[in-house]
């Protein structure tokens, strides 16, 4: 499955906003979703499952780093790198 960047962005953003019970004005594409407290441990585990179910992206141990998950933009970048 290889999705266009815009489709990925739309799906990730919608998932993040819905899961965090937050409006679009609160979480921007580069907001630090973990550092700012929108997502906790359970949110992180659910996000990992979402990436697998929605994009077929399986997260490896050494990929569990901030650079891959800290914001909507980081997550989109991670999905694209994994799909390539």
């Amino acid at each position: 499955m290889h999705l266009e960047t815009d489709t990925i962005k739309e799906k990730v953003k919608s998932y993040i906003l819905q899961s965090a019970y937050a409006g679009e004005d609160l979480i921007l594409d580069d907001s630090l979703i973990f550092q700012e407290g929108y997502f906790d441990s359970m949110g992180f585990v659910m996000l990992i499952s979402f990436l697998d179910e929605e994009f077929g992206v399986q997260v490896l141990d050494d990929e569990l780093i901030e650079e891959n998950f800290e914001s909507i933009n980081a997550i989109i970048g991670f999905i694209i790198r994994k799909q390539n």
Partner: peptide
Amino acid sequence: SLYSNLPPVF
């Protein structure tokens, strides 16, 4: 993961 801003994963 203790010094990371990411929460831990089980």
